[in-house]
Design a protein around this nucleic acid. Structure first.
Length: 553
RNA sequence: UGGGUUAUGGUGUAAUGGUAACACAACAGAUUUUGAUUCUGUCUUUCUAGGUUCGAAUCCUAGUAACCCAACCA
């Protein structure tokens, strides 16, 4: 039990802080902006922040960073909460940066009074020019030296709606020649005559990220404020605000965000996929969003395991999506119910089986005996997978071919005696004889066969739509490809099978049940399902050693 | 001579001056009424060059490469 897992760098910091007595307990936060859906990259941050809270008996707040009313909506707030709950975490408090607008406004006044902030009238274009560049120092704005009284008056007027959007801004007075671009008098308040999803029309000035985030952390007494690497340059400003406002010193720590092969993670790009119709919505099963993964059949447990395995560090990474799939299969293999479904059917007729006969055969529901068994109807005419028959068998082939024998899962061994084709050369039926003594569970035939295939009785089969998903992008790292990332979309990322045949027991499937369709992969019911038409999503394929063998030749 | 961050197998992550390890991927084999699962094995690693040391992934010096920063976005 004392098997010690090494700590990541944030855990090391926390343990040192706890040990030194700097903090009695820790408080973290997850701070999404409600302008999009959460994706697997957010899951890494959620698992980190909430995981730390749990591990060190601290707490974690959920705080919506809602300082930009033009992009933020309540719809997103709800989906974000759903996703976090689904992942299995609960927050100590639900807060909003907008809860602090009064306090933040007072902070701005404080800064003005300390001559550390001023109202600027120049345009965005002029400001960009005066800002300089990473290699060129910036220049002061002509309005930089307004008196404190004038700034107070002007800022109050801004708040009172006396100006139009963009006419004036409040800037921190720091250093236009600073090597850190963010310290060159950053804007801290801007005018936006926009309706806010929570404060309505109370405000027409809104604080910028840098003047809201750190202060919000401080107001909540967040001890460890964890964010991604691109915020490293912001830390200096984060600390400047805390110091000059003389408020609770939260500390910011940065880790490398998750990147995953064959997908994109930027909200902007994901939004584009949705709005331009490349996918059906935020919860399209091909999307790397949590709602997409959920709809596709992923379990929260598998995502948490994945986040645990990828670790937390500061270097850029590109995680192979097969690791996520591994975590998923590992769980689903243990927990999912087994069933048979034929996706690309061809008829198999057992010539020596009585025409009117039907048997109810017993089949196990899963690897664990506790999962029990079910019965599956068997009869003379079956559907089997077209790819399980080869007119001219390949090397190492051990499924159906003229003259070969296979076992029908949980049923009998059959021998292929012949087949029929239509004018186009397409196989229309496979003719077999069965060996009565080979019945599953009581096989006295003494015959052993290498191949076992799945099947569904034609007379009892239920029809279903099955959606097969593949990776959304062809390239390993679509974001790094030349040109528009959308040019790299995999045209075969969705394959819809309209008429798959499934065993009758699947007709009672519910949205939360997970199945392994024998030899075909893991599947779950899609929300598009109706009583008349069942729709299944393929969550993930099974590992396919034969597929690899075929590819080699 | 802008500033900042990071460099360990194909991909991630450990090793905190003392045998470079774990997982995924890949490859080979065994078992199998799922070509799944399970089991066994193989492959490949410290950015470069110097230095300190009995001993360096780790410390020092000098390079190199990648990423981030010039939104009234977060």
């Amino acid at each position: 039990m004392s098997e010690e897992k090494s700590l990541n760098f944030i855990e090391e910091i926390i343990e040192a802080d706890l040990k030194s007595g700097k903090y009695q307990s820790i408080l973290t936060r997850f701070p999404p902006e409600p302008n999009g859906y959460l994706h697997i990259g957010h899951a890494k941050s959620i698992c980190l922040n909430f995981g730390l809270g749990i591990k060190y008996s601290g707490k974690t707040n959920l705080r919506f960073d809602d300082t930009n009313p033009v992009t933020e909506e309540t719809e997103y707030v709800e989906s974000i909460k759903d996703d976090i709950r689904w992942l299995g975490f609960s927050w100590a408090n639900e807060f909003y940066a907008s809860d602090y607008f009064d306090q933040l406004y007072a902070f701005a006044i404080t800064l003005i009074k300390k001559d550390l902030a001023y109202v600027d009238d120049i345009s965005a274009e002029e400001m960009a020019i005066l800002k300089g560049s990473p290699t060129q120092p910036g220049k002061d704005s002509p309005y930089r030296n307004r008196s404190i009284e004038e700034n107070l008056l002007l800022f109050t007027a801004m708040k009172e709606g006396k100006y139009k959007d963009g006419e004036k801004v409040l800037r921190a007075k720091i250093d236009m020649a600073h090597t850190n671009m963010l310290m060159r008098d950053p804007i801290i308040y801007r005018i936006k005559h926009a309706h806010h999803h929570r404060t309505g029309d109370t405000w027409c000035i809104y604080p910028m990220y840098d003047f809201a985030h750190g202060q919000s952390d401080s107001i909540e007494n967040i001890t460890h404020s964890i964010c991604t690497l691109e915020f490293i340059p912001h830390r200096e400003l984060y600390e400047w605000c805390i110091e000059n406002l003389n408020i609770f010193p939260s500390h910011q720590y940065e880790f490398a965000r998750l990147n995953m092969t064959h997908t994109v993670m930027s909200k902007r790009k994901l939004l584009q996929l949705v709005t331009e119709g490349y996918v059906t919505g935020w919860d399209d099963p091909r999307m790397p969003t949590l709602s997409g993964f959920r709809r596709k059949g992923y379990t929260p447990e598998s995502i948490r395991t994945f986040c645990d395995k990828i670790g937390v560090a500061k270097r850029e990474n590109l995680i192979d999506i097969s690791l996520l799939e591994f975590c998923l299969r590992e769980e689903l293999n243990k927990t999912s119910l087994r069933a048979m479904a034929v996706l690309d059917p061809v008829q198999l007729i057992i010539t020596n089986y009585e025409d009117a006969r039907t048997e109810e055969l017993v089949s196990e529901n899963g690897p664990d005996e506790a999962m029990g068994t079910r019965t599956v109807p068997f009869s003379k005419t079956l559907w089997v997978e077209r790819e399980d028959f080869m007119e001219e068998p390949a090397k190492k082939w051990f499924r159906l071919a003229p003259g070969t024998m296979v076992r029908l899962k949980s049923a009998y061994i059959v021998k292929c005696e012949g087949f029929t084709k239509d004018d186009n050369g397409k196989v229309t039926a496979i003719h077999c004889t069965y060996i009565p003594e080979s019945k599953s569970g009581g096989d006295t035939s003494g015959i052993s066969v290498k191949g076992t295939i799945h099947w569904v009785s034609a007379a009892h089969a239920v029809t279903a739509e099955v959606r097969l998903y593949d990776r959304l992008f062809k390239a390993e790292n679509p974001a790094a490809e030349e040109g528009d990332f959308k040019d790299n979309i995999n045209p075969d990322s969705l394959q819809v099978i309209n008429n798959a045949f499934i065993e009758p027991s699947l007709a009672t499937a519910t949205l939360d049940s997970r199945f392994q369709f024998l030899r075909k992969g893991y599947f779950c019911l899609d929300k598009d399902s109706t009583k008349e038409k069942l729709v299944f999503n393929r969550t993930v394929t099974l590992k396919d050693a034969w597929g690899k063998e075929v590819k080699k030749h």
